[in-house]
Design a protein around this nucleic acid. Structure first.
Lengths: 203, 203, 203, 203
DNA sequence: GACTAAGCGAGACGGTACGTCGCGTCTTAAA
DNA sequence: TTTAAGACGCGACGTACCGTCTCGCTTAGTC
């Protein structure tokens, strides 16, 4: 649901637009209820009143539909925080929204359910990487560059590794260890990453 | 397949043991060929010549079977490296086998394919956590404890977070970013984690 | 395509007439290619470039369209042969065109494909009976009447039964026995029917 | 339902036999109710409580199932009437059961509905011809042979044509003309066929 | 050395969901 | 106004596997 949609929420919708909205709404409800396991195309048709054909006309399969249904949610927080004047603050500003987003029942369910699919399906993997991961890596690169300029971070800091050390632990908790995404998880990770790449003169 | 089995490898096997071996072998082959998607119970019966009933008598479903088939591989490297006299060396000794293991086609396929199931199925999740994750957390705790004693690490080092920062990036690459598990990945992660939790006097 | 159409072939056609011709042409092509099974409305739109709506505006369903497309062919040969002065000749003149017509790939395909629909759909059945069958029964009645007057046929000859014995075997071959519609089939049937209803003094 | 089945009606049936009976019963009910149009595999599963898979395991498609469901009915009356000492009686004995059988709602519905399929599907056509038509042609051949020996029929009588003139009119009524299968239809056809092939000295 | 009974292969069964096809209806924009 | 274009709701298709259930047969292990 983009901001355009919100502005036009009361405008008349064509059949297609109405169908699409009904499909995505039903999909999100089913995902929130039972995770990806509870999402079947037939359940979507039943709940949305939209024909199977119409769903398949838009999305190749269940996984694409699931991803589409939560895409805007995953996509948020991508606007760069910009220069906050403080490297730690910028790291926190990067990782906090990730933690917060993945704390929601809907999104945690979806990521848990789609992880295998994303890891397995080349097309899905490509989209996910290009649209979600790389922009975030680029964000971290900016943060790192500014940190280096400030003298906070070592000049040879590997931004990609920094990115992985920021988000890796969060997803590890989500998928494998089951440890909770505490309120302070983001800042603790940010602290650790800051120290991991801090310039020596920073002591 | 326990070590007992190995000792008895040339001993005559009963029907049951033969069936179990045939099932697990077929499972591993199917997993290696096409990942978890290619693993169906019916394919296992077809390839192993074992009856469906016999499979279901031993494992609840496809996912338990898949995990069982690779369990020994996942389970290796758990023996603590012990005191190497050097904290960095111990961190490397911890993370290197993880990277190496996950680099194999079989195991990377399996983990990619089972990630969602592990994240989703409570029973599987419990087993995975208790049998695989917690022992490794305990290992890291030992490394951290020794590192603190040596004055290398800060006394308040969070071993669990350290563990997550060690393995999280590896699994993140495996599942999401698709970045390769380079030969030096383990040592670079170990370096970063060491600095992240290094005591200040360590500079 | 009626003879009127041919006369007007170079005259400008309205959109409607052009659409209708395109529909019927495509229908006949599809019927000839794969019989009634190959005839789908969607295939007709694809081949004719005509919209579905336009088809449904003219014919209720696939079967009506199929029948319409071959109607002129079925309808031919209805002009009474008139008095040939010889009863056997008149019987042959009746049945020969039927055999010849049903020998064509197009019409045999269509009749085979539509038989069930004609036998089943009341409206189609009514049209078929009134427009095709009854006129032919009437023709046979004329032949019979003249045959009786000539003293060739018994006065109580049942023209309807005679008609059925003329065309029944042909359609039986077409639909069920698969026996070929030989060149001499018409005359052999005519002979048999002639004898079946011949007046006794005829010996 | 063969006579064996009747004798064993109270014997315990295996799962398979029970399923098969349930399928065929449901099929016959649906056919009787709405003809072949009312017969869908899904309706059969719903009414019989048997799974779709089980149906498809036994019959390739709807049409094979329909034919199987009425096969025994179609197959009856095949026992040769034997030498009745009278050619006309033997012709009547041949055609009467055909008329009677096709008068039933069930069988007339089925034949009407399957005619196109039988005429169109090569495999179905082959089975129908070999199992139903040819045996009846053979029956007529016997009748003809005896009739010739008795001096009732011409030595060159074409038994196949005779067969077609016997059954053709009945099926023509059933499928196309809609004329009723009167009680005396069989004997009137038999009379006509007898005269059609009667030896000249027979007057 | 014969006799059980547990375990096996084979595979049919009821079931869920899949993704596809073609139907006949409805909407929209262009001619 | 009629058309081409094509999306929509719908019903049924035939398929893939699921996990359950007989069913004989094999095969140890017990008398």
């Amino acid at each position: 649901m983009t901001s355009d949609d919100k502005l036009l929420a009361n405008a008349p919708l064509g059949r297609s637009a109405r169908a699409e909205r009904a499909i995505l709404d039903a999909t999100r409800e089913l995902l929130a209820d039972n995770g990806v396991r509870g999402l079947t195309i037939e359940a979507v048709t039943a709940r949305s009143g939209v024909a199977k054909t119409t769903i398949y006309r838009r999305w190749r399969d269940r996984d694409e539909l699931a991803l589409a249904a939560v895409w805007t949610d995953l996509d948020t927080g991508l606007e760069s925080p910009g220069d906050l004047g403080d490297t730690r603050a910028e790291l926190v500003a990067f990782i906090e929204p990730v933690v917060t987003t993945l704390r929601s029942a809907l999104l945690s369910n979806v990521i848990r359910g789609l992880a295998s699919e994303i890891a397995t399906n080349p097309e899905l993997s490509r989209v996910y990487r290009e649209e979600l991961i790389e922009p975030r890596v680029a964000q971290v690169e900016l943060v790192v560059k500014r940190g280096v300029q400030r003298g906070d971070l070592r000049p040879d800091t590997d931004a990609r590794l920094a990115h992985e050390m920021l988000v890796g632990p969060v997803l590890y908790r989500l998928l494998f260890s089951g440890a909770p995404l505490d309120d302070d998880l983001g800042s603790r990770i940010a602290d650790a990453v800051l120290r991991a790449f801090a310039s020596d003169s920073d002591g």
